[in-house]
Write a protein that binds this DNA or RNA. Structure first.
Lengths: 173, 173
DNA sequence: ATCTACTTTCAGTATTCACTGAAACCTTAG
DNA sequence: CTAAGGTTTCAGTGAATACTGAAAGTAGAT
């Protein structure tokens, strides 16, 4: 193997390992993040067995996490003609990756919070005691803010890349 | 206990429980989120023993998570005169809470990612093979995007509430 | 209809992460 | 100094989560 090919393999392994470690920090399961890293840096679609071999994981594990990535929309299933098995290919456009992750995190983090806050705010409406009023007010403020974050996430998530860049340039300028 | 006081207790318990459950989703430990919820809805500073009693957790657990909340900056230590023990009080301003969480998440999620990407991008600079170039390009794009997200987080985190509201109004308008 | 090449599921196991409770450690008061 | 009141640490335990491997399921090919 050439020197460069070795360096490349090393760099890629490092990326896969570290991206996986990062996944934990992000509340995403390590294997899923590793598979994602592997696919993002693959030149062409790869199959379940390649994933198993590369990451030294079981078929079940590879399967589950590949399907989860497909559910998120970060990975597509590809069928090659003349091949019976499925191959997988990751979305590589960073802006698309970002909007997908934004959408998922909104679903998982913001929306449940909003539901909780709504109920707590509603359940304490019109209380007479100082404590009751303070609680209601706190719930209302949180609800308003989170609702607002939810709208921002929607808006940003549906922007075209170019527009987002413009907006951000203004923000940072 | 009056009817209203009961309703309040119920609503507050629900908030604490649900906020805790949410914490898991957010990659924050459940107890820490529960303590935070408890403190956010407390009328006055409370002590370790109150937290232990309210959440039915051990001293060690209460202690560790209270200190972690203090480290984050979401909770302050308060000393009452004539009292030897420490009391705790949460920041209640939602915008401040938001900026603190933004700062912490940037530190925990964005900065390590950036470091990884830098190294991988650097380590694959100037490769000749198509694979090497594709890898380098992918790393560069990710690095650029994440670096950018980092700056946005800084900027938003240091905004005054009023300014952020204005900006957001424009964004959502 | 049967074989073959895969995909999917899931009970059991391993790993990781959080919690307990008790001991060690401060700090102020007497 | 010693005692009392309070805080901090941490080894051991428990709960949650992820992973394995093998069996069951599916679908195209013969």
């Amino acid at each position: 193997m050439s020197d460069e090919a070795q360096r490349l393999k090393q760099a890629r392994d490092e990326f896969v390992a570290q991206w996986g470690a990062m996944g934990s920090q992000w509340g995403i399961n390590r294997t899923m993040a590793q598979i994602h890293a592997l696919l993002m840096t693959a030149v062409e679609p790869i199959g379940t067995d390649d994933v198993m071999a590369e990451l030294e994981i079981s078929r079940g594990n590879a399967h589950t996490n590949l399907k989860e990535l497909v559910t998120w929309g970060l990975v597509r299933v590809v069928v090659k003609k003349g091949e019976r098995r499925e191959f997988f290919e990751a979305e590589k456009d960073v802006w698309k990756i970002f909007t997908i992750v934004t959408r998922e995190r909104k679903k998982r983090e913001i929306e449940p919070a909003l539901a909780v806050l709504s109920r707590c705010s509603e359940g304490s409406r019109g209380m007479k005691s100082a404590e009751g009023q303070a609680f209601h007010s706190q719930m209302q403020q949180l609800e308003e803010f989170v609702g607002f974050a939810s709208k921002v996430a929607d808006r940003v998530g549906s922007m075209k890349h170019g527009f987002a860049v413009q907006l951000a340039a203004k923000l940072l300028g």
